[in-house]
Design a protein around this nucleic acid. Structure first.
Lengths: 134, 134
DNA sequence: AAATACCTTCCAGTCGACTAGAAGGTGGCG
DNA sequence: CGCCACCTTCTAGTCGACTGGAAGGTATTT
């Protein structure tokens, strides 16, 4: 399986595949006589996992840690679970932060709408903006 | 008011203040005879707004748009409100995405925990990872 | 006069995940 | 034999929001 075929199968670009190899998240494949990369089809699953994990918001570095542990045959589950749990925590924090952001934006918008647009003509003190200093 | 004093007042570093000037989000201040930047204290409010807006997740570019409109004395409120609303929408999308991510992570964790860690000793097919292909 | 603390400009680097392009080699088809 | 798609490596650029450092000028204190 050549790199282009793998790209077609997985939806990654050949550039991205080589990049993943560079950063070590994909192993160096074998080579054909002409130097072309030659992939074992099992690599498709690995790419699939990478995409899934990435969709869950894991960074390539985090994914790499999981995959390295797996490659070394360590008691991966525990490590993986710990990593997933810490990431879950981070995601929960992000959600809380975004809710705070959302509330602030809504406040800004409500205040801005309540103002008479004509007041905005004073360039030194736009009401919308002044009003946002809560 | 020199740049260091402004930095102290606002909590920004002098580097950041110069950077904001470079990208145009802060106006070029006057200069003292020796070439030092000389700020009008009103700049503190502008920095305050920048910080508030940033805390609400607006990018410097978005903030710059608002400030430019204000500087031009246009009917800023409407533009600002539109910008804030579109950002609010983006934030809401992000929240939804993160909830999906969270659910996926929780699924992964539950499945991983339900497995016998001993099964993980097979380096070619860690159960946690295989299980994540939902 | 020296030390220090501040100021100036400009250039470079960081993080993350790629993407673009140059310059050249290879495989297969008509 | 020409053509085109594919492959190779390498370098460098992108976005956003800074941060670091060099090399030098200035203000104040001791």
């Amino acid at each position: 399986m050549k790199i282009g075929e793998l790209a077609n199968e997985t939806g990654l670009s050949t550039k991205t595949i080589r990049y993943y190899e560079d950063i070590g998240i994909l192993p160096e494949p074998g080579r054909q006589a002409n130097g072309y990369r030659s992939y074992n089809p099992s690599i498709i699953d690995r790419v699939g996992f990478i995409k899934d994990a990435q969709a869950s918001g894991l960074s390539l570095v985090e994914i790499q840690i999981i995959l390295e542990l797996r490659d070394e045959g360590e008691s991966t589950c525990e490590h993986t679970v710990r990593l997933l749990e810490s990431h879950l925590e981070a995601v929960e924090h992000q959600i809380i932060d975004l809710h705070r952001t959302k509330a602030q934006l809504q406040k800004m918008i409500i205040k801005a709408k309540a103002l008479d647009p004509a007041d905005c003509q004073n360039p030194n003190r736009c009401q919308t903006i002044s009003a946002t200093h809560l």
